[in-house]
Design a binder for these strands. Sequence first.
DNA 1: ATAGGGTTAG
Length: 603
Amino acid sequence: MVRGFSSIENHFISLIHASKTTSHLRQIHAQILHHGLIESSSMVVTQFIASCSSFKSINYALSIFHNFPNPNLYIFNALIRALSDNSQFQSLISYFSLMLQQNVRPDHLTFPFMLKSAMSLLEFRLGATLHAGIAKLGLEFDSFVRISLVDMYAKVGSLDHALQLFDETPVRTKATNMLLWNVLINGCCRSGDVQRAVKLFEAMPERTSNGDHKRALDTFYRMLDVGVKPNDFTVVSALSACSRIGALDAGVWIHDYILGNEFRINKEIGTALVEMYAKCGEIERANRVFCALKEKDLLTWSVMISGWAIHGCCEQALSCFEEMKSTGINPDEIVFLAVLTACSHAGLVDQGLLVFNSMWFHSVKPTVKHYACMVDLFGRAGRLEEALKFIESMPIEPDFVIWGALFCACRAHKNIEMAELASKRLLQLDPKHAGSYVFLSNIYAGAGRWEDVERVRHTMKSRHIEKPPGWSFIEVQGCVHSFIAGDQSHVLTEGIYRKLEELTVRAREQGYMPNTGWVLHNIEEEEKEDSLGSHSEKLALAFGLISTPSGSVIRIVKNLRVCGDCHSMMKFASRVCEREIVLRDIKRFHHFKDGACTCGDYW
DNA sequence: ATAGGGTTAG
């Protein structure tokens, strides 16, 4: 019972709180209407909107809102929160404008939800505008607002802003401090997320670099240095940063830290650990951690299955999938995608078809990604006619990725006519996409039409169409080094290039010719040819060779697909330098040993 | 003190 309101209001508040479904709400609605409260009690309406939101009935919430004359701050805040919780970020912004128009002054509870929309939309400008508004209203030092600001800046990739605000936050309670550290670390690794990085690259005034994962780890260590004890959220974020950059040593260190500091290995931590080992190349260890977990949910199974898939272990992926189903967990679309990917990489067409067809039984509707995976499955195996038939029979409109998969398969299996068909579709679909230009350029190059190649490249440059830069990470003695193509910023640059030169010369002597013609590349992800000789993964390899003890495993992580030339070089280096090289690219793992790769040159 | 408060895994 809340004091200060009429007993009839309190009566309805209790009813609203006790409601379990939208239809309960509708019954209460009728009564409130009868009492005239729906247009007069801002308190009741506020509660009502909040409850609609928790049942995901955002349109119901909006209709209630629109029936209330002169909504006050509480009602606006409830609505903004509802829109935020239901991911209606665009309309949230217009209701915020409406709020300002109606002279309702936003407060310290309005802004965090507004900032959340800036994060979700990856809108630096919106975030900065909100920040200015916050300062104007003197809300900058409210701890909730502060945390949201740091969170927002970190998530949209403006880590400098985030760090500055973080450092400039004077008074912190223990809880605030913990949250500040966690949102900063988590934001660092999120902003380094490849997909986000691509989006940011297109949308942001300040481009993010994938070195941000490294900053997440640095921040984690800084936290320990100043004696702040990490909690569950912190270690999950730090492990996630390790997963993304393949920092195995750091990941193991954090695992030990968890074991030594009385953490309970809950679902979140367990899943993060399994993912870390899987994505850092230690699939067997991932499996051991996975088997020992007491709590597993869909996500846990999902990272394990994806782990087997990216390591090319199709059998294990399939049996893990079966085991998951037998425990009564219903697979979702991401799990299916992982299983299909595993089948595709192993060339198991019929098995893949079986899995694809079983999606209906689990009421999982295939998305365009699943269809693309199926095209890839047929295409890789050289069953091009079936791939085309599959595309024609799809209930959805084929997109860029689907035609791209067919194109690659046609190229690999040398079906020129079908490749032409696919490339035409590609160009129709997305004339602005950087990948289209590279596709076009490659088609011309293949036909020897060099003037056309030049023209396309020129157009690309003049329209400022750029591709996300390729980068590679290598961890040496717990320290992560990142390289981009042609990188000269590393302190050991001279030695790196000398080693690379030496390797290239020896490779040529022994007849290692880059043979990329038949490789199943997604051309969209390829790097520019002119920097082929100093691709980031080659630089990372050379650095690894000169800075790690002989005989030790070299682990490299790349954000794009490995190129054919670099792949040959890795095979060569694994033999002549007697090193095992574990390379993770965006799609899968390559384990090089004695001049061969576990992908069987089929990726 | 008239209602409303924050982070983590595929």
